[in-house]
Amino acid sequence: MPRAQALQLARDGVSDEVIRELKTLATRGDSTALAARIEILLSDASLEPAARERALETGTFLLGALPPERKARQVLRQISQLEPQTWVWLEEGGHRVSVPLYDPAAAARVSERAWLAREAEARFSNKLGTTAPELVDDLARASLAERSGVISAIAHAPAAQLLHSKPSILAALDQGVAVGWYAAEVAARTYDSELALAAIEHAEPREALDMLDALGDRLAPGDILPLLLHSLRSPALASHSLFVLARLAPVSPAALSQIWQELENEENGGSAAAALARLSSPEAAMRAAAVTVDPDRDDALRRRALLALCLDNGDAAQRHLQLLTQSLGDSSLGQKASQCAGR
C-alpha cells in the first residue's frame, strides 16, 4: 500500500496511546512489566497491523535498552519470529515495489545483540588489561555483538590498564589467534605503536584502516610515520595511508618525501598522485610538471605525475597543465594532458 496510507494507519490515536504507555513503563526501568505489555500487543487484534507493528518495534527498542530480564528475553524471542505485515511502496521509485515499513523481528534481533553487547561489556570490563590466560581465548571467541561490548569497555578502561595485556595479545597474534580487531581498538585508545603495528599485520583491513585514520589525527608525525610506512606495503591499506600521509605532509618533510617516493611505485603511484594533489602546493605542482615532461623518465611515472596535476584544482597545477598540453603535443601523454586540461 502507499507509504502515506500505511503511516496514517500506523499513527492512529490508539497506537500513540499504546506507545506512550510503553515509554512510561520503560522510563520506570521495569523490564518485566514492559515485556508483559508488549506480549499483550502481540495478540491485540484491535490494533491495525501497521499500528501494532509500529508499537512492537518501538517497544522492542525500549526493551533493548533495559536489562534483559527473563520475561523480556522470552518476548523478544517471540517477536524475532514475526514476519513483517505492512508492506509499502517505494513511492519515489515509481514502480510500486514494496518493502516492509516496520520489521519488529529485525528490531528484536538488534535489541538482543545490544543485550549481548552490554553483557560482554560488563563481563570484560574487569578482565581487560589483566594477564588472565583465558582473556585472549575469550576475545577470540567473541561474537560481533560481544565485540561491540568489548569495544565499549575499552573506551572506558584506563589506557595504562589496557596495556597490561599487551604481551599476551602480541603473542597470540604471532600464533595466528584472531584478535587483530582487539589490538586495533586498544592501539587506537592507547596510541601504542607496537600494538598498532601488530594490528596492521593482523587485523581485517577495514579495522586497520579505521585505526590508522584515528591515530593519524592523534599521534605526532614522528610516531605515526613508521606505522604508515608499514601499511604502505599492504595493498588494502596503502591508498588510504597515502591520504593520511598527505595530512601530515605540511608539517612533516619526511611524510612529503615518502609520498614522492611512492609516486614511483607501480602499485601505490596513483594514490600518491592523489595525495600530492590534495596538498595543492605550487612546489608540488612544479615538481610534478618537471617529472611529466622529462623524457628520460619511465612513461608510467610521467603519467602518474600528470595525474597529480590533473587532480589538483590549484592555479599552479592548472597553469602547468596548460603548458604541458602545448609541450607534449599530440603524443599519448599530450593527449592525456589535454583531456585533463579540458576538465
Binding site: 518495534e57 513483517p84 518493502v99 516492509p100 516496520y102 520489521d103 523481528a105 529485525a106 528490531a107 538488534v110
Partner: peptide, 13 residues
C-alpha cells in the same frame, strides 16, 4: 527489503 537483510532494522523502510 532493507537493512534487516543484513541483521539491521527496517528503519521506516
Amino acid at each position: 527489503n532493507g537493512g534487516q537483510d543484513y541483521g539491521g532494522t527496517a528503519s521506516h523502510g
